[in-house]
Write a protein that binds this DNA or RNA. Sequence first.
DNA 1: CGCTTCTTTGACGAGCCTCAAACTGAGTGG
DNA 2: CCACTCAGTTTGAGGCTCGTCAAAGAAGCG
Lengths: 244, 244
Amino acid sequence: MTGRFSTHIGFRPIDPILRRLKSLATLSEPELSLLRTLGERRERHAPGEQLVAEHAKEPRPRFVVSGWACRQRLMPDGRRQIFSLMLPGDDLGFESAPALASVVALTALETVDGAPALDAARRGAAPGLAAALAAAARQADALLLDQAVRLGRLTAFERMAHFFLELQHRLEITGLGDRQRFPLPLTQEIMADSLGLSIVHVNRTLQQLRRAGMIELRSGVAILLQPEAMTKLCDYRGVANKAA
Amino acid sequence: MTGRFSTHIGFRPIDPILRRLKSLATLSEPELSLLRTLGERRERHAPGEQLVAEHAKEPRPRFVVSGWACRQRLMPDGRRQIFSLMLPGDDLGFESAPALASVVALTALETVDGAPALDAARRGAAPGLAAALAAAARQADALLLDQAVRLGRLTAFERMAHFFLELQHRLEITGLGDRQRFPLPLTQEIMADSLGLSIVHVNRTLQQLRRAGMIELRSGVAILLQPEAMTKLCDYRGVANKAA
DNA sequence: CGCTTCTTTGACGAGCCTCAAACTGAGTGG
DNA sequence: CCACTCAGTTTGAGGCTCGTCAAAGAAGCG
């Protein structure tokens, strides 16, 4: 987690949030400076910490500044399904209560309070921000549909490719990755629970992708060697941008 | 499709809509009568007809009055994933444009224009209706998460059980089914595309459920013989009700 | 270092898919 | 009333994908 893709060096703390929201709607200068002030009320979370409980009456709206989290549901027998990964710049707990899934930190995580932004948007005081948050919610919906296609109709090989392409795109938007490289601080268990596979099969599928010359994984960084080929192979359609 | 669960005999045309929205929020008398007037602008759709195209700029908001539809996505090679089934009383095309998936009629279908309801809710003229529509959107989100769990972490046997329980609950709410029986006008191909299975395996899994004394299927009607056992077996949690 | 967590490998079996064909039932037209 | 057709269901055979169990490496961390 150090070096080129560090989330601490070379970026202002809340830069991913600004970048992401700017990619979703046009923000005014007052809106931007409101967002910049959010960085002051920061909070740290250890891996495994639950940020939102499944039926939380009033989940606190937050933005992820650094580190990764996920939305998930657990079954009584221990099976877990991860619905989506929350990357730096992503919002959580902005939807109406009660929460439909829990949110859990996957790595060391930093978040900031999103309430000022949400309030301003709701009051009508920040139309650009309101549009950006609406677009973010739409994008989350789109990602969930992609996830359903992955789980229901893609093979393990296609699923992994699709998954990596989604991460590449999302991380590039926030400036944390480029067209080919991005940080990937996930264990194979987490990928398994996200992709509906077993850990062992994730491991073997990763090897397949490596042998096919598609990817390279080294110390928390993923490299896509043939992004175009991967895109075709799994019918990846990219992340939704601005709403209409 | 005649007899006890007919959608035409014994119910006022838009009754499923009223029942469903009343289950989601408290509606005032003016709101109810607004909804009743919707029944006048009715539209018929043949099976297979596309009601909303995947990237439709402005999908027309509609309520399903009778028949079933689905939200789905198609892959270039013909694979299909159904995200959700739309039953009588359900709304479609109410979210912000452009549409993230297409909506297709699965059976002969009747819909009515939802725009008057949506407009009234947006204008602030119908707070109860607005609450009901928001709760409906929330419920759709919840169903999509259930669907992801089904696809990612349940076995074929559990998936089918979970699927039937969801349909039972949803249809009971609109008065189209009871605690054990409900109409099921779906081919096994449709179930397969909904559950992420092959047709053949759906057929065999249905036989398993029958042999286990769980279900009975006869001419478009499903009977759940042991709903409680089924609920335990697949960790079914029921449909979300009123939002907070 | 020694511990824990994570990754990797092997062996084996089960779940699910594909292909192919037979069967059923509901029209449709002669 | 009887083919005939067509969509849907059911069955069989065979094989690939993916899961489970178990244990051996690697890699991070105190």
